[in-house]
Design a protein around this nucleic acid. Structure first.
Length: 921
RNA sequence: GCGGGUGUGGUGAAAUUGGUAGACACGCUAGACUUAGGAUCUAGUGCUUCGCGGCAUGGGGGUUCGAGUCCCUCCACCCGCACCA
C-alpha cells in the first residue's frame, strides 16, 4: 500500500465538496474566527506559485482554528474589474465579461487543486451586478454624507442643510474651499444650483477638477502605469497633464482617525509606519506674505515658522494660480518656457530628480512681514501644487533641497543658526540658538516656533495649522470595465440616483475605444447616456479599489438582496481576525478599506470602525530564471561553466524544462522551433544553466504553475513546501528543486502507518516515555508555531518528529493519531485518508486538537556547553537541581577546562541554569 | 528624493529573542540494497589546517563574561510612492 497522492487527493476533494464540509454558518455557539486573504485580480495568466503562499498560510490557520473549536469564516473571491481586462478587450475584441468569467474559472480550478477549505458558497465577484449594486449603494452613502469636524464623524448631508438654514456655515468651515462663508439668510436665498454647489464642497464623495495623464494621439487618459518617461507605453506618444472634472473621496477628513485607529490594530510596525508616513501629519503654520508692487499674497505652509528670518527665497509650484499674475514682463518668456518643460514631467520624476536642479525666477518679490526684506519668488518643479498651499518659504541654511537650489542659482544664503551651519550643507536642526532673527535672536528654535505663530496670529497674517500630506482620493476612471456611477446630471448638476434603481448595470458595448474629450467609452453610448433631453448619466467608472474596499463585509452575508450585509451578520463576524496579503497594498487598499468601514460605522451600518484586527504581510516570491548561453552569431549553446571561453548572448529559457540547473536538452528542442537544430557544448555530459533572480513573469519564462507541481508531487507536498521555503513574511526566490525533500517526508510519514506489502501497520501497543516525549515536544512546537504563522519551523518540526519515530520503529496508534491531527491543517488530504484507515468514520476536520502535557517532556538534567572566555570548548551534563557550587567544582575539575586554564587564574564563572556555563580567566 | 524591508554555508533557511551559529531540507561526495534507480537506507559535507587550533552571520567600530541578536556608522539589493491590481 503506497502513498498514491493523486487518487487520495481527488477522492477527498470530491468528498469535501459533496459533504459541504466547508460550509460555514452565521449561527453557531462556537467562538468565531474570520481569516481573510487579499482576493486576487483574476488575470489571464492564471495563478503562479507566488500567489498561493498567503492562501496556504491562511488555509492552515483556518483549519487549525477549526480544530481548536472555532467557527471559522474563510472565503475567496475576485477583484474582477480592472485595466488589463479592458486592455485585452481593446486588443482582441473579447468582452471583459467573457474573459473575466474564463479567468475566474481557471483561478477557481487552480485554487481547488490545492485543497483549500474555502466556503465557496460565499464567493464574491466585484464585477457582478449583484455585488456592485452595493458598491454603488455605498458610494451613494458617501455622496449623501459630510464630515462634521466638531463631532469627528460622518453625518447625512440632510443634517448639514438643516444647519445651514439655522446658522449658515459659520460653525462648519467648508473643507473644499475655506473661503466660502454664508449666513442662514444667504443660504435661504441661494438657488438650487448654488446650494448644490456648496453642498458638493462638503460631501464625502465629491466632484472637483484634477489633472490626468492625457494622451492626445491615443485620445485617452492613461494610468501612471501606462506612461513611461513622459510618453505612452503603447506607441510612445507624448503625454501631458489635462484638467478634468472627476470624483473624489474626502479621505483627508478622516486623516486623523485613520492615524489614531492604527493604535487599536495589530499590524506590523513597518506597516503602521508606512501608513503614518502616507497620512503625513505635520504641525506648523500657514503664513501670508505680501508681494512687492502687487496686491496678491502668497500663502505658504511651513513646519518651521521659527526659521522665518532665514527665508532667502520663495518657491511656488509651477501650477500655482498666482504664477501668471506675478510674473514680470522681463521674466515672462523664461517662465513660460519653464512651464512647458514642467508640463512634460511626471510627479514622480519631479520629486525624484536630485542631480538636476531646475527652476525659474518670476521677477516678483515677497516681503518678509517681520523685517520687510524683499524675497525673490521662484517657481520650481520640486514644489507640488497638491501639497500644503503649493508654495514654500525656502530656508537654505536649514533645508538641504533649498540649500542646493540656492547654490545652483547663486541666491545668497542667510545664516540664522550660527556655528550650527557650516556653509557646505544645510543643517535641519531644531536645537540651535537663533541668530540674525530680529526679535527671536538668542532664542532656542523649538520655543521660537510658538512665539512666531502667536505673533503671526496677532498680526492677522498667519495661523497654526495641522497639515496632512495625504490627498483626497481620485475616484473617477475614464474607462469601461469598472462600476458605473449611480449619478445623473440634470442640466449639468449631479444628482444621486434612487436606491431602487440600483444597480446601474454596465451597458454592453461593441468596442472599448475612448469617448470624446478624454471621456470614457461609456460616453459613446449616447442612448444610455442621454436619459432625457437635459438628463445625462455619469460616464466615468469607479477605480479598481472601489469593489475591494468592502468585499470582506460581503463575505459575511453574500446573498443578501436587501442590504450590503445584514447588521446581524456583521455584528457576529465583526472584525477580520487575521488578514494576509502583500505589502504592495500597504497604503492604497488598506487605507480605503479602513475609510469605508469608518464611514459605514459613522452612519450606523456597522458596529466596528476598524476592519482588520490584525494583518500579516506575506513576502513576494521572486522568480528564479534560467539562462542558456548562445555563442554569438551561431545556434550553438555553451554550458554555464564554459561560457567565459566564448562570446555569448544569454537567453531566458522556460524554468519548467530545467531540473535544478541542468537543462533538459530534448525538451528545449521541442520548446521553440528556433532550438530544434541547436547544438550544445556540455560540461561533464550536462548542460548547466545560469541562474538569475528577478520578478516572476511570463515574459521571463520563470513562472511555475501550481497545477504542474500538484500533479507531480500532490497538493499536500506543494502546500508544505511553500511553507517550508521560509517565513511567510519574507520575500524569497522560488526554486522547485527542494520540493522533493518535503515529498520524501510525507512518504516517510506514510510508512509509519502503512507498508507496501503489509498495508496498515499501526498497532495498539503502549507508547514508551521516549515516544511520548517526542510526541509532546512536537505538539507543543506545532501548536505554538501554527498559532504564530511560523509555518516553516513547524514543517521542520514535523520532519524531526517523523525522523525520530521512524528510527524508533514506532507504529503505535497512541502516538500516530495525535500526530495526524496536528498535521491535518498542513496536509489535509493525506491525513483524511490515514484517519479513515485508522477506523474513523467522521472526518478528521472535526477531530480534537491534541493537548500538550508537560509531564512527558520534563528534563532532569541538561548538557551544558562549557565556554572558556565565551568560546565553547566542551560539554558537561548536570542535574538541573544540582547546586551552583557543585557545578563550579566539577567544571574546574574537567580536564578540558584544566588544560585551558593552565597558568591562569579563574576570574569568575557564569552559570545560567539550563543554558550554558562560561569560565572567565 | 521620500518611505519600508532584507543581508547567515554551494542553495532555502534555523537559532528557545543576549547564551553550543548553521536545526530541518536541497545539492554534492562515498557506500549498501537492487535487473534498474530520478525508489529506499547509511555515513560525510561552513572555510582553513596533517593535527592542536584558527576564522566565520554584508563591511567597519562599540557595549558585554558572552553579540547573528543591542548601539553607532558605512555598503549592497528588493518593494511602494496616490490612475496596475
Amino acid at each position: 500500500m503506497e502513498y498514491n497522492f493523486r487518487a487520495i487527493e481527488k477522492k477527498w476533494q470530491k468528498q469535501w465538496e459533496d459533504s459541504h464540509i466547508y460550509h460555514v454558518s452565521n449561527d453557531s455557539p462556537k467562538p468565531k474566527c474570520y481569516v481573510l486573504d487579499m482576493f486576487p485580480y483574476p488575470s489571464g495568466a492564471g495563478l503562479h506559485v507566488g500567489h498561493p503562499l498567503g492562501y496556504i498560510a491562511t488555509d492552515i490557520y483556518a483549519r487549525y482554528k477549526r480544530l481548536k473549536g472555532f467557527n471559522v469564516l474563510h472565503t475567496m473571491g475576485y477583484d474582477a474589474f480592472g485595466l488589463p481586462t479592458e486592455q485585452y478587450a481593446l486588443e482582441t475584441g473579447q468582452h471583459p465579461v467573457v474573459t473575466t468569467e474564463q479567468n475566474i474559472n481557471a483561478f477557481r480550478q487552480q485554487l481547488n487543486n490545492i485543497g483549500f477549505c474555502y466556503d465557496w458558497s460565499r464567493e464574491v465577484n466585484t464585477s457582478d451586478p449583484s455585488y456592485y449594486k452595493w458598491t454603488q449603494w455605498i458610494f451613494l452613502q458617501l455622496f449623501e454624507s459630510w464630515y462634521d469636524r466638531n463631532l469627528q464623524k460622518a453625518l447625512p448631508i440632510k443634517t448639514l442643510e438643516g444647519v445651514f438654514e439655522q446658522e449658515g456655515n459659520k460653525n462648519h468651515v467648508c473643507p473644499g474651499d475655506r473661503s466660502i462663508q454664508f449666513t442662514a439668510e444667504e443660504w435661504k436665498q441661494y438657488d438650487e444650483v448654488t446650494r448644490r454647489d456648496i453642498l458638493m464642497q462638503y460631501r464625502l464623495a465629491y466632484l472637483a477638477y484634477a489633472e490626468v495623464n492625457w494622451c492626445e494621439a491615443l485620445g485617452t487618459v492613461l494610468a501612471n502605469d501606462e506612461v513611461i518617461n513622459g510618453v505612452s507605453e503603447r506607441g510612445g506618444y507624448p503625454v501631458v497633464k489635462k484638467k478634468m472634472r472627476q470624483w473624489f473621496l474626502r479621505i483627508t477628513e478622516y486623516a486623523n482617525r485613520l492615524l489614531e485607529g492604527l493604535e487599536t490594530v495589530n499590524f506590523s510596525d513597518a506597516m503602521k509606519e508606512m501608513q503614518r508616513n502616507w497620512i503625513g501629519k505635520s504641525q506648523g503654520a500657514e503664513i501670508k506674505f505680501n508681494l512687492k508692487n502687487n496686491d496678491g499674497q502668497i500663502e505658504v505652509y511651513t513646519t518651521r515658522p521659527d526659521t522665518i528670518f532665514g527665508v532667502d527665497f520663495m518657491v511656488l509650484a509651477p501650477e500655482h494660480e498666482l504664477v501668471s499674475s506675478i510674473t514680470t514682463p522681463e521674466q515672462k518668456e523664461a517662465v513660460e518656457k519653464y512651464l512647458d518643460y514642467v508640463q512634460s514631467r511626471s510627479e514622480r520624476e519631479r520629486m525624484a530628480e536630485v542631480k538636476q536642479i531646475t527652476g525659474c525666477f518670476t521677477g516678483a518679490y515677497a516681503i518678509n512681514p517681520f523685517n520687510g526684506r524683499e524675497i525673490p519668488v521662484w517657481i520650481a518643479e520640486y514644489v507640488l501644487a497638491g501639497y500644503g498651499t503649493g508654495a514654500i518659504m525656502a530656508v537654505p541654511c536649514g533645508d538641504q533641497r533649498d540649500f542646493g537650489f540656492a547654490r545652483h542659482f547663486n541666491i545668497p544664503i542667510t545664516n540664522i543658526i550660527g556655528d550650527a551651519f557650516n556653509g557646505t550643507e544645510a543643517n535641519p536642526t531644531k536645537d540651535a540658538k537663533l541668530q540674525n532673527s530680529g526679535f527671536l535672536d538668542g532664542m532656542e528654535m523649538r520655543p521660537a516656533m510658538d512665539v512666531v505663530i502667536n505673533k503671526l496670529e496677532e498680526m492677522g497674517i498667519g495661523r497654526r495649522q495641522i497639515n496632512y500630506k495625504m490627498r483626497d482620493a481620485g475616484f473617477s476612471r475614464q474607462r469601461y470595465w469598472g462600476e458605473p456611477f449611480p449619478i445623473v446630471y440634470r442640466n449639468g448638476v449631479p444628482y444621486a440616483m434612487d436606491e431602487k434603481d440600483l444597480p446601474v448595470e454596465l451597458p454592453y458595448v461593441e468596442n472599448y475605444k475612448p469617448g470624446p474629450d478624454g471621456e470614457g467609452p461609456l460616453a459613446n453610448i449616447t442612448d444610455w447616456v442621454n436619459i432625457a433631453p437635459d438628463v445625462k448619466r455619469e460616464t466615468n467608472t469607479m477605480p479598481g479599489y472601489a469593489g475591494s474596499s468592502w468585499y470582506f463585509l460581503r463575505y459575511m452575508d453574500p446573498h443578501n438582496k436587501n442590504t450590503f450585509a445584514d447588521r446581524k451578520a456583521t455584528d457576529y463576524w465583526n472584525q477580520v481576525d487575521v488578514y494576509v496579503g502583500g505589502t504592495e497594498h500597504a497604503v492604497g487598499h488598506l487605507l480605503y478599506s479602513r475609510l469605508w468601514t469608518k464611514v459605514l460605522y459613522d452612519l450606523g451600518y456597522l458596529g466596528f470602525d476598524e476592519p482588520f484586527k490584525s494583518l500579516i504581510n506575506q513576502g513576494m516570491i521572486g522568480g528564479s530564471s534560467r539562462l542558456v548561453y548562445r555563442i554569438h552569431g551561431t545556434n550553438q549553446y555553451v554550458s554555464h561553466g564554459l561560457k567565459d571561453q566564448y562570446q555569448t548572448d544569454a537567453l531566458h529559457v522556460d524554468v519548467n524544462i530545467v531540473d535544478g540547473v541542468e537543462l533538459d536538452i530534448e525538451a528545449l528542442k521541442k520548446w521553440k522551433p528556433e532550438f530544434a537544430d541547436a547544438t550544445f557544448i556540455l560540461e561533464d555530459g550536462k548542460y548547466i544553466c545560469g541562474v538569475q533572480l528577478e520578478k516572476m513573469s511570463k515574459r521571463l519564462f520563470n513562472t511555475v504553475n501550481p497545477n504542474d507541481l500538484v500533479n507531480k508531487y500532490g497538493a499536500d507536498t506543494f502546500r508544505m513546501y511553500e511553507m517550508f521555503l521560509g517565513p511567510v513574511e519574507q520575500s524569497k526566490p522560488w526554486d522547485t528543486k527542494g520540493i522533493e525533500g518535503v515529498h520524501r517526508f510525507l512518504k516517510k510519514l506514510w510508512r509509519l502507518f502503512a507498508d507496501e506489502q503489509k498495508g496498515i501497520i499501526v498497532n495498539e501497543q503502549a507508547p514508551t516515555p521516549e515516544e511520548l516525549k517526542i510526541l509532546h515536544k512536537t505538539i507543543q512546537k506545532i501548536d505554538h508555531d501554527t498559532n504564530n504563522f511560523s509555518f516553516n519551523t513547524a514543517v521542520s518540526s514535523f520532519m524531526i518528529c517523523v525522523n525520530e519515530l521512524a528510527s524508533l520503529n514506532c507504529h503505535k496508534r497512541a502516538i500516530l493519531e495525535p500526530l495526524l491531527v496536528l498535521l491535518t491543517p498542513y496536509a489535509p488530504h493525506l491525513c483524511e485518508e490515514l484517519w479513515q484507515y485508522l477506523g474513523h468514520n467522521e472526518s478528521i476536520l472535526n477531530a480534537i486538537y491534541p493537548v500538550y502535557e508537560e509531564k512527558y517532556t520534563a528534563e532532569t538534567a541538561f548538557t551544558y556547553p562549557i565556554a572558556i572566555n565565551g568560546k565553547t570548548r566542551t560539554e558537561m551534563s548536570f542535574d538541573l537541581n544540582l547546586a551552583t557550587e557543585e557545578i563550579e567544582k566539577a567544571v574546574l575539575a574537567n580536564p578540558v577546562v584544566e588544560k585551558w586554564m593552565e597558568g591562569k587564574s579563574l576570574k569568575r564563572m557564569i552559570i545560567i541554569k539550563g543554558k550554558m556555563i562560561n569560565v572567565v580567566i
